[in-house]
Simulated assay, not measured.
Amino acid sequence: MEDDGRSIGSEAVVGAGPPGTDPSRGASVPPPVEQPERLVAWQLIGQARACQVIGSPLYAHLLTTAAQDVLGGGPLADLLVPRVRPGRGDAAGLRLMAAVHRLVLTRRATKLATHFPSVGGTPDLGTAGATFLDAITDHLEVLRVDVERPCQTNEVGRAAGLVVGLLACSAITGLPLAIREVGAAAGLNLRLDHWRYELPGDTIVGDPDGEVVLAGRWRAPVPHADHGFRVVDRRGCDRNPIDPTTAEGRLALSASVWADQPARFERLGAALRTAARVPATVDAASAAAWTREHVTPAAGRVTVVYHSIVEEYLEADERAAFHRAVEAAGAAATEEAPIAWLRMEPSSELRHHAVSLRLWPHAPELRHLATTGAHGDDVTPR
């Protein structure tokens, strides 16, 4: 259930104006559902701005084209307006681009593929928009199904931010980790102890021989880097788990990666190969009920419940119930059986997300450990 959507603060996401206006100009508050064309355009242009900030000019261009097409009553209005959802639309822009990328990866949109580096293309922003709209028209019926797929970006680069908290848990408690991920998608980051982390100061933690290599992502020394960490148990949950060992699972994960970011594709490939040999259970379950069952104190280990860019996808009641479940587990923790709550979630700071930690009984108050980009780059430990 992970997602890239809140890559910039909500106050920086601009709205769509009335039909015929530039959708990149307008209020930061989303239009009401009663104005569905404007709301969909607002959602798309917000994601376009996020993609531009994080380094995907192709997706920024195509999503801006999509917003203009919606306001103009084109094929994307036919596709998206009947399916409009309030607010950010459950990552409408990301779901659209994953559906289109799926067409490219399965060789059904061959002309559009010439613009997608993920299959060897070279973007031409002068012509890509028109080719994109042609592909939408040609595959409208398939897209009606695929845009309903939930956003499932299982970005392994986010482990660069999470590792700051894992090292703290290990060093403060002196115990190995039992990790519990909420919104785990395919569970790739349940294998994060098998990644190789090349930290500042020539320090390597994780698996020195790991295929996933995270290097050059930290802007300052990482506290407790010399301590390392060890995972002795792993389990996660997701409303719609993906099996990364199947062809469909690999396609779903690949489609969610932005097509003009080859380094992310390389990391995904390495993570998929690791997942094929390192088992990890991802239960189909809601966050709160699963936490009550699987996040419990256990002697001789610190149980770490963690998530990255998940909370905005939880309904308010479910989010509150999840928080209560974690805090109840924390209240039952002891020195011998600690509970940790590690979060990487959006902050109001442009481009950045906050990595924060609560650790019962050692440090139960919320501590901000680092800021990081949405994909685990520019990690700045505090």
Rank of each mutant, 00 (worst) to 15 (best):
G55D: 04
S347R: 04
S347N: 06
H294S: 10
A159N: 05
F132V: 07
E365P: 01
L268Q: 03
R250T: 12
V33I: 15
I204N: 05
D124R: 11
L133N: 05
T122M: 07
V379H: 09
E155S: 08
G17R: 01
F116W: 04
A340N: 00
V257R: 11
V257K: 10
H194V: 02
G236F: 06
H368S: 05
L39W: 01
V278W: 01
V295L: 14
I136H: 08
T291K: 09
L214Q: 08
A328K: 11
L143S: 12
E336M: 01
V53G: 04
T245F: 09
P279H: 01
A41T: 04
A280H: 11
L314W: 02
A316N: 10
A215V: 11
P223S: 10
V295M: 09
V222P: 00
E181P: 09
D226C: 06
V232W: 07
G269Q: 13
V147S: 00
P208H: 03
D260L: 08
S348L: 08
S28Y: 10
A128P: 11
S254T: 15
G126E: 12
A220M: 11
E181T: 06
A66G: 13
A289G: 06
T137N: 04
E266N: 11
T246R: 00
G74V: 12
E349Q: 07
G201E: 12
G249R: 01
A252R: 15
D146M: 14
V222R: 00
I45W: 00
S347W: 00
Y313L: 13
W42D: 04
V84C: 07
F229I: 09
T122R: 15
H368W: 03
R108Y: 01
L190W: 03
D124A: 09
T334V: 10
S28V: 13
A98R: 12
G5L: 14
H194W: 03
P346R: 08
A67R: 08
N240C: 08
G73R: 03
H115S: 10
S254Q: 15
